[in-house]
Design a protein around this nucleic acid. Sequence first.
RNA 1: GCGGGAGUAACCAAGCGGUCAACGGUGAACGACUCAAGAUCGUUUCGCGAAGGCGUUCAUGGGUUCGAAUCCCUUCUCCCGCACCA
Length: 967
Amino acid sequence: MEHDYKPHEIEQKWQKNWTKSRIFQAEPNERQKFFITIPYPYLNGNLHAGHTRTFTIGDVVARHKRMLGYNVLYPMGFHVTGTPIVGLAELIASRDPQTMDVYEHLHGIPKDILLTLETPENIVDYFKHEAEKAMRMIGYSIDWRRKFTTTDPTYKKFIQWQYIRLAEKNLIVKGSHPLKWCPNDNNPVEDHDILHGEGATIVEYTLIKFRYKDLVFPCATLRPETTYGVTNIWVNPNVDYLKIRVEKNGCEEFWVVSREAFRKLTFTDRKVEYIEDIPAKSLVGIKLTNPITGDIIISLPASFVRPENGSGIVMSVPAHAPFDYLALRDLYDADLHDYGITEDLKEIKLLSLIKVPEFGEFPAKEIVESMGITSQSDKRADEATKIVYRREFHGGILKKITGKYAGCSVSKIKDILTRDLISSDAGELFYELSEPVVCRCGTPCVVNMVKSQWFLNYSDPEWKSKVYKCLSKMRIIPEDYRVEFENKVDWLKDKACARKKGLGTRLPLDKEWLIESLGDSTIYMSYYIIAKFIEKGALSLEQLTLSFFDYILLGKGNNAAVSAETGIESVILEEICSDFTYWYPVDLRSSGKDLVPNHLLFFLFHHVALFGEENWPKALAVNGFVSLEGQKMSKSKGPILTMESAVRDYGADITRMYILSTAEQTQDADWHKTGIESTRKQVDKFYSFAEDVIESGKRGSISSELKQIDRWMLSRIQGYIHKTNIALDSIQTREAIQNSFFLLINDVKWYQRRGGENLLYYVLDNWVRLLTPFIPHICEEIWEAMGHKDPISLVQFPLYNEDLINDGAELCEEIIKDTLDDIEEIIRVTKMIPQKVHLYTAPAWKVSVIKKYICDINLKAYIEAGTFIKTLMVNPELRVFGKEIPKFVQKIDTEFKSGGAERYEIFDGLGLDEQDLLKESASFLETVICCPVEIHSADSPAYDPEKKSRFAEPLRPAIYIEGRNRE
RNA sequence: GCGGGAGUAACCAAGCGGUCAACGGUGAACGACUCAAGAUCGUUUCGCGAAGGCGUUCAUGGGUUCGAAUCCCUUCUCCCGCACCA
């Protein structure tokens, strides 16, 4: 063992050693297996601090389980399908300045190599080597024989099998899908292509088709149920309206909409054609038919109607919509003869259709009146609308007027009603952006209905219910994420699963399309098992037939038939099959929390769809992100810290320990230079401790005679072993490092300070094993220096041994430490230089009061202080102290009632005299405070000039310090 | 808007009904060692205190409780996701 800790030398040595000895190459055996996977990285850049956190968590769990005796498989592959790598190749080919800068300086790619990364293939080739190199440099215990890349022809065979089988189960369907669209670029827009409107979403409206003669007046609404309460419709006299021809599913209709609405409709799944302009004025005052009630209603003018929203025509529900009520009220006294309206609008009856506890019959009217809103241009009308809508949505029940829907809650009716409206041709669906979106090219975006897309049918209720079932049986770490997963399963809708651009596998049902890249990474954990055989050349591309995968993954068919069909030797086939049976299912999939609503969800969906329940995954874990000095990382724009550069600068062990100690579980971690620097010092301390212990040559053991401090150390280390194991089991890496490192190192310091040395070797022996999952290289080095031949990576992890827990020893140390702290506090406060310290143990009467109290409370569970005092006074020996007893009882009463009695019981059980304890420790106290210490009993103090002994209490000696003033 | 989460001492960050003036780590100050520096070790780091104590704290304002950083409600602030993108 070298005198100075040189991380890189040690790390290279052990990495070579591990590779050579193949100790992380996992093969089935008689031991229990543990199959842990982490999502493989997407290779459009080097691995960074975020990967470092997630993958290191995986490695720590893998190493911990391995040391607990499990047969652990921790494999890794590379994800390259999809568009970003293609995009990156284009950017590099065109020498985009920002890209060149970020990839050269932050990803650390040498300029001459960077210039060659002009094709996706070169990029994949380069980064997969870099990624493997980085993961080897940081010491992950990965079985590298199983690596693969998602563009491997063999992998594509696997994915095709997956999609053929999904299609057979009718989980892949063809349909239309609304997309944010730039009409100028004629392309979908993603958030990074947008000038403004990033937050915009696509909102599904229902168009209610009011009719007038042969014309349709569509009104867009989010609340189709309110159609039952429509009293009129609104048109804005200052807006341009058009008559258009609309064709959908072969049916032709003529609609009246605003000019803006016409433009939007051209992008929907309808054929539309301009016929003529219609003067707005001619639309006011006409009588239309409500398509679901058959009521005849009038059209009225309103200024709040905006041509760009919906169709530019609005249906009016004055009982429930404040704007409608206001607009109607504004017209009560207006002269509408111009429009040919002669009716008295006050005659229009408000129609109430929702019952809601907070309001009476006409919520809109009530709120407008109570808020004192004056007109439709009042700014508070928006607020009133929100309030009414929210109340009605959450607590509203439909009234009788809604016919067969009466009694339904408003929050549940929308989908049902919409479906009914569509089937009766009273309504249609219409998608609109929640806020204006402008493309980078300056063009306002629209919603475009893309036709004939391939979808994964995630909204299938049966499929979902299987996922719920799977979730309910799974362990979710941390448990609070379970709700999140359940919500997301609920929220997931059908998802387009094919694309035209990028790298990937062709969709078997339609070779025009490529399988979308989130869909080709859902069950690949099973492929790791096959990959080993492909890597060693036991399987050729042609042999990977559908029946091969059926046989291996689903257990369908039989060996002889598959062997005959594929030409794979029967023995090999059997081996692959039994490997799969042994390793599957996945025992733990651990990932960053960003993958919860996508990858992890799909991982579950595809598993439950294809595999039998016995092969459904067992556990999911999620962890937080990593930021750099408070800044969010970005692969394409920086800042970024690569795994390799962190390891190069600080070493693997230090990087590993730092990234896992700085934040817990789903908390985000912030990478600070000062933080990792201090970790370096900490690891260094551990190294020198180990070195000192080894060099001293002393190997005391726990079977030799133990002193108080030894028993204390023994007990403490057991506590940390216990907590570390528990923490690692629930992937609380910070908690695990706190216990196995920081708290333990502090105790070791105290142990040595108190003169402990007998157990130093024992401590090291446990400690080094405890830390191996986190900092494996340095631990191997120390383990070897301790004289062991076998790698520590395969040695038994320390297990909790309750027999070594010694509450008494811990209590005694606590008394000493507290006494020392008290003495030091007095010295500090009085600013004196101590000449002599006198300690007084408690008088016998206080001890007997406490004993009596404990005895009584054990009998009765509750003690009333006054009664207790009376029973004490009966005893003549105690009666002598009658004056002091009430005060003392009061004190212990409050203390004990909040659970403070335990310490006394423990001490009592020791059969130890406090005098002896203090006398034993006196010499220690003397060295720390640099003056003599004398122990007295408060019962008969030889020296007590200031009567301090009266403060003595059991487990808390009184203190009197003689000192001189500081000059 | 919807859904999830967070606000703790100089900073990072645990705690999530009594053991809490609140783990641990940074940073800072002082002391020990040293010719000195670094490393290391010790002490302190909310306020007051020449006796181990007292007082005021865990975003905010209320409430529940014998007892709240911890439970419930109000308000404020911040972060994340909302999709066809990995």
